[in-house]
């Protein structure tokens, strides 16, 4: 079987494979410890249904000789939305955003409850992990403490349980033939549609998906600005704008949760900047 490694950050191996003149993608757990999570991912993907977007079909799954879980899925011959944003015809962005929001809200409606202490436990745990980071001079602890305080003071009541992607960055959406395909589903510590919107904002506002690019050229920046502003308008239009603040709280929590996994100083500085920006937006009472 012919294979080619695709880029992957999560420690999983992602292979493009050819067998019997058919291409497919095999995603293999980095170690057996990760098996359960990758299996949840495969199940989430297999169960996925939407009127607005698609997923690669899950074809097969199993365990490798090393005891690692893997699953095979359809190969989508396209480019990630992060890359596509460089060249997308500017007038087509609106349609993409509408579809994304349409999907997120559609599944967000089937709501249940998230236990209140899920958030407080997570924020507490975050405090602990930042205590270990205090020695790292590049981490702006004053900022972090302000952010943690804001998260603690927030009531997370309106975060209702609903199905969501879990890591909806522009890198995990593939564009092919004007269709959007979700990949790389994640089991986050909470499932809520707000999380997905905050992840999109993380790219649109904080250019997270582009953090490793040498330069984000002007055409891409303008496209992301259009993406961001349409997204904000659509978000503001839902229930007279009551969700806008919640989304920024979710984004703040997301940004803080990246710190403990971050090793390089460049990314830390990037996180400091973006955390400060989101905090300022929240402190000023929205946009």
């Amino acid at each position: 079987m012919w294979t080619k490694a695709l880029s992957g950050h999560s420690g999983c191996q992602v292979l493009l494979c050819e067998s019997d003149a058919r291409l497919f993608v095999r995603k293999i757990s980095g170690s057996s410890d990760y098996n359960a999570r990758l299996q949840v991912q495969a199940e989430k993907q297999a169960r996925f249904e939407s009127r607005f977007v698609s997923v690669p079909k899950v074809l097969d799954s199993g365990i490798t000789n090393d005891g690692c879980y893997y699953f095979d899925m359809e190969y989508i011959r396209g480019v990630t939305l992060a890359e596509y944003m460089r060249r997308i015809e500017i007038g087509k962005i609106r349609g993409f955003v509408s579809r994304l929001i349409g999907h997120i809200v559609d599944v967000g409606n089937k709501s249940g409850y998230i236990k209140a202490d899920v958030f407080s436990d997570k924020i507490n745990a975050l405090r602990q992990s930042f205590a270990a980071l205090e020695a790292d001079a590049s981490v702006d602890m004053q900022l972090i403490n302000r952010a943690l305080a804001a998260l603690e003071a927030h009531s997370w009541q309106s975060f209702t349980q609903s199905s969501c992607h879990g890591d909806l960055t522009l890198e995990n959406i593939i564009v092919h033939d004007s269709e959007l395909y979700f990949i790389d589903f994640l089991d986050s510590f909470y499932d809520c549609w707000i999380l997905d919107i905050s992840t999109l904002l993380q790219d649109a506002y904080a250019l997270w998906a582009y953090r490793n690019w040498d330069i984000v050229d002007m055409n891409t920046q303008i496209r992301l600005a259009v993406f961001r502003d349409i997204l904000m308008d659509e978000l503001t239009a839902i229930d007279a704008g009551v969700w806008v603040n919640e989304v920024f709280y979710a984004l703040l929590l997301k940004l803080l949760r990246i710190y403990p996994y971050t090793k390089d100083e460049k990314t830390i500085r990037f996180l400091n900047d973006k955390t400060a920006l989101v905090l300022l937006i929240l402190e000023q009472g929205g946009l």
Partner: peptide, 13 residues
């Protein structure tokens, strides 16, 4: 920003 960037934004947004 160039003028064309502004136009691009107005077309898109």
């Amino acid at each position: 920003l160039y003028i064309s960037n502004i136009i691009s934004y107005l077309i898109g947004y």
